[in-house]
Design a protein around this nucleic acid. Sequence first.
DNA 1: CGACCATTTGATATGGATCAAGCGATGTGG
DNA 2: CCACATCGCTTGATCCATATCAAATGGTCG
Lengths: 222, 222
Amino acid sequence: MSMAATGSIPVDDVPTIHCAIQALGLPKVFLPKARIYGEDEPARNLYQVISGAVRIYRVLANGQRQISAFCLPGDFFGLGVGEKNAFSAEAIAELRVLIIKRSTLIALAGEDNEIFRQLWTLIGQELNRTQEHMLLFGMRAPERIAAFLLQMAERLSCHNSVPLPMSRQDIADYLGLTIETVSRQFTHLERTAMIGRATARLIVVHNRLALSQQHPGRTLPT
Amino acid sequence: MSMAATGSIPVDDVPTIHCAIQALGLPKVFLPKARIYGEDEPARNLYQVISGAVRIYRVLANGQRQISAFCLPGDFFGLGVGEKNAFSAEAIAELRVLIIKRSTLIALAGEDNEIFRQLWTLIGQELNRTQEHMLLFGMRAPERIAAFLLQMAERLSCHNSVPLPMSRQDIADYLGLTIETVSRQFTHLERTAMIGRATARLIVVHNRLALSQQHPGRTLPT
DNA sequence: CGACCATTTGATATGGATCAAGCGATGTGG
DNA sequence: CCACATCGCTTGATCCATATCAAATGGTCG
């Protein structure tokens, strides 16, 4: 869905940015909890996750931390327009990334307008994801949790065992809930046999259908 | 802020898309409540608001309507990537827009990569706005309302009298509150002399500073 | 083994939803 | 020109989902 073509132009034919970051990207490793960049710092780089996970977040004046996105292997981050970062980024688990300078991309784009088209596509996908994320806030806690688990299962492309890289606090801050509510919802899903918990971070999805019915994401065509 | 340059390349020098839609855009008028496009319809056009206002929304399976954005004069909408619209769009007040086909833009972009760069910039601004919108859901009702009023005052670039084009229900569906809560918060702001109400839709901001202190948008640098 | 941190569980409080009614504009027909 | 219907908004009373406060449990590492 998120990889759909744009207008009549297919998206995946010439993955220039992918090539560029593969060829020119600088590999770097971050330890868990390491800061990758801070809000309001100059936005200089584009990152692609190789392994591990990243949280993108902002801390509000009331102390609330809102996590805007989790970045998983394959994901890009640092895509925004503007001179400064709008959010901070931190490694969750041990993280390997490739880094390419924006200026390098811009220079490449001078020769090949494919780069800008792909920046448009990539940022458009991020917009789609952010909009879907926003819709979660119109749902109740059980539905948010179900949607989150299904999303993680899909994005980690795992069959039924979902290894969550993030803590309960991270999940809570992503979903706009408290850690206690998250925990209770997991317990409830386990008691109703929709999921199992191998460990706290390793969830087994037993009943994907029931989970997906929890969560009213889109109007069903009548 | 949202018009900041990107990297070392200034954004506003060659407003190609603006020129294109000025020169080639088809003017069209919509009556209040008229549908502009529906979710899942093919996304064929880019729109710019001349006058009036638009709501961009989706209806969830539970009946909740989440408004993702209001578009005001000058704003673009229909920018997404992907073949289909992710949301529906409706006129709120009587609406005048300019319409340009995506295919026309894409064709222009073949000659001039400025188009794609600007699509990147425009969608990036929409992403910024959506992310800021998401942060509202981490706040309490009074703060959401205050942030909303300040945002409207700024976007409508009015001094103190803010003519809201949308209904209380629209505001509620944008902020994730009920119409009753919205109404009560307005009443409270009036009682504490932060705002006045000339009519229900015409708000006078008396104390911008106090309003902005209600709402903990960003961590203040210590 | 013991300290530490993440997670779970329990008891209580509360902000905003829900249910229900009243009010004020705007418009229509008699 | 006025009764009356309609629609959007406000106000009041009560309820409930989730937050908050508090404590127990469990897993990991020295």
